[in-house]
């Protein structure tokens, strides 16, 4: 795997192919409320990743018998558009998309107050428009912004980052090449305020201490993503700030 193909992922100064340091995130920009029809939506660019998320709900469950009597159902569909990757991806759902839909749902579920709207569903649709490594965690980061934008009650947002292993060293937010030629990939998602991990997976080889270190690195990166999530949501509705400050509420 690593280096065997003749690709050096780190230079002599320990900088990565795209110039980043090992613990550096790619440039991340999130926009909230980008779609008119969806109840909530968000768009994220993380490096060359471009992912759009739409949330519909709470709404009636179809088919009706799938409704849960005591809580809201959360349904999640992760999908990659055919032109999102270099070799056209067949539009039919792949096994990878089926698995990612499940783990993404399970990453968002702990944050939502599901008991507030029994017998309804909230549907999260994730479309990867362009992919360049770490799409599942970027999707989670955008999806929780879309859920907040839709007014879904939550105890925290959820943000995610991948920790990779390139030439024996742990690296934050690996891109496509680093994922393909590196020695491991560990996507991690957390509720930032609570410090609770809602998604953790791995492939490759990690020692026990590397897992501990990865968790720490992820936590720091997720704190930065959380700031961007808040910024995106606040900026969307910031016009209100001017109006309220112009009025005297407190006398």
């Amino acid at each position: 795997m690593g280096g065997a193909e003749g690709i050096k992922l780190l230079d002599e100064e320990g900088r990565r192919l795209d110039g980043r340091a090992l613990n550096e995130l790619r440039k991340c920009r999130i926009e909230a409320g980008v779609l008119k029809n969806a109840n909530g939506s968000a768009y994220i660019e993380l490096g060359r990743n471009k992912i759009l998320v739409a949330v519909y709900g709470p709404r009636e469950v179809h088919p009706r018998h799938e409704a849960l009597p005591d809580r809201m159902l959360l349904r999640c569909k992760y999908s990659m558009l055919p032109f999102s990757v270099p070799d056209r991806k067949n539009p039919a759902p792949s096994r990878r998309e089926v698995e990612l839909s499940k783990v993404i749902r399970e990453a968002l579920e702990p944050a939502i107050f599901l008991e507030e709207y029994p017998r309804t569903t909230v549907d999260v649709y994730i479309e990867v428009i362009e992919a360049d490594g770490s799409t599942r965690v970027a999707s989670i980061t955008a999806a929780s912004v879309a859920l907040a934008d839709a007014g879904i009650p939550m105890r925290d947002l959820v943000a995610g980052v991948s920790v990779g292993k390139i030439e024996g060293k742990l690296a934050i937010d690996i891109n496509g090449i680093e994922d393909q030629y590196g020695e491991g990939d560990m996507p991690i998602a957390m509720m930032p305020r609570l410090g609770e991990i809602t998604l953790i997976q791995a492939d490759g080889r990690f020692t026990r201490d590397e897992v501990v270190q990865a968790l720490q690195m992820a936590r720091e990166a997720i704190a930065k993503l959380y700031e961007e999530q808040k910024r995106a949501l606040k900026e969307k509705y910031s016009r209100i700030l001017e109006e309220v400050e112009g009025s005297e509420v407190m006398r």
């Binding site: 879904i152 009650p153 939550m154 947002l157 999530q229 949501l233 910031s238 700030l241």
Partner: peptide, 11 residues
């Protein structure tokens, strides 16, 4: 602060 947008989970 007055008029501040708060996100879910924010103190």
């Amino acid at each position: 602060s007055n008029g501040q947008i708060v996100v879910p989970g924010e103190l």
